[in-house]
Computed example of a mutant assay.
Amino acid sequence: MQEHVELARADFPLVFKDILDKEHFESRMFFSDPISRYTFFRGYHFNVTFLRLFLAPIFEVHEIRQAGPHELVLKWSWTMNFWWLRFTPFKLVWDPRLTFTGVTILGYHPQTGKWNKQVDAWDSIQDNDFFSFEGAAFVVKQMFQVSKPPNRFTPEFCIMKKLKDWEIRSYKPFVAAQVAGRSEEAAEALLRAYTGGANERRQRLDLTTPLWRNSQGATLLALPGIQDVGSAPAPSDRAVTLQAVPERWYAAWVFTGHPSPADIVGRMESVRVRTRAEGTKPVEGAPWLFARYNDRNWPWGPFRRNEALVQVDPATFDLWRGVDWDFVKRIVKRPV
């Protein structure tokens, strides 16, 4: 079993790369997720190849556990994007990103040791059996999101759990320029001046996204490609300060439009309610963040992307919480 755990760690991060070792799979293989099903490895491999070529998936395995005598269960995150849209006129209004988190029940043949069963279940839906109309609706909803952030650097994060209309993220450390005690408009002007060359080196920095505004009245903008404060050019204006932002976890809700201050506060409270119901605790006293991805006046309405982020305590997050173990047991017992 331990050999297969190590094999799964080695194989499955490579599923969507063109180096998957086909010799590790039985020709007769059962694969199922909420919207597709195959009973032979050729069908499974066709599905994987199609996704790799057209949606450029990023697949990350977080943890692996034993689920049965010849079965494992993997916890993962999975993000896809329509990369080829960048070469079409549609890129101006449509650039969807599909995100899933969930579990894979992975089985192997006891005599050959080769994989012969893979069944995926998503955190975002209740009905994970094929064919799931709930699953299809979730995919369509993500595909037709028209809110589009600019093509700029944004701080790196991993979505640890994707639920129906919100998610839990782990952000990697980054450096930000900050302005406190000013209106958002005035702060944005100072930050744009800093990145435009108003610094000791007269160095122009690429604009990033989003522009963050926290509940304490500070406005922040991440600096691209800068790993520590000492590497960033010092601001010419004392109103602009530099801040090292450590790794943090946030519960996030993506929405569109031009929200009012009252609407933003209401969404933050909704995120807190969802987070507590899921079992992860918000960090008491930590400022919330409103993220605006687009310029102030363009685009309009549903084409704008905003986020409400509430900092959460990663020590209270359980990667396996909410997994339908009855579904896992049923798949373990299912013969191939």
Rank of each mutant, 00 (worst) to 15 (best):
G279Q: 08
I226T: 06
M29K: 02
A244Q: 09
W78F: 11
P155S: 06
L309M: 13
G43D: 06
K164I: 03
T154I: 03
Y108T: 12
F138M: 09
R276L: 05
W115E: 13
I58Y: 12
L220Q: 06
W122D: 02
F133S: 10
R292K: 07
P69K: 12
V323A: 03
F100A: 08
V48A: 11
S124Q: 10
R65Q: 10
L20S: 03
A187L: 04
R152I: 04
W320P: 00
A234M: 08
A121S: 09
P155T: 12
V15I: 15
D120C: 04
F290G: 06
S27M: 07
F153K: 07
V175Y: 01
F54M: 06
G257D: 03
F30S: 04
W76Y: 15
A286W: 01
A56G: 07
R52A: 08
V73N: 01
W298F: 11
I264W: 04
L309E: 14
T99P: 00
R274C: 03
L223H: 05
A186I: 03
G225F: 09
L319D: 10
R238E: 10
F59Q: 14
W94N: 03
D228P: 00
W288R: 03
F290D: 08
A177E: 12
N214K: 05
R28L: 14
L190I: 07
W94K: 05
V93H: 13
T104H: 04
Q216G: 07
T209S: 15
L51Q: 12
V336Q: 14
Q311P: 10
A177L: 01
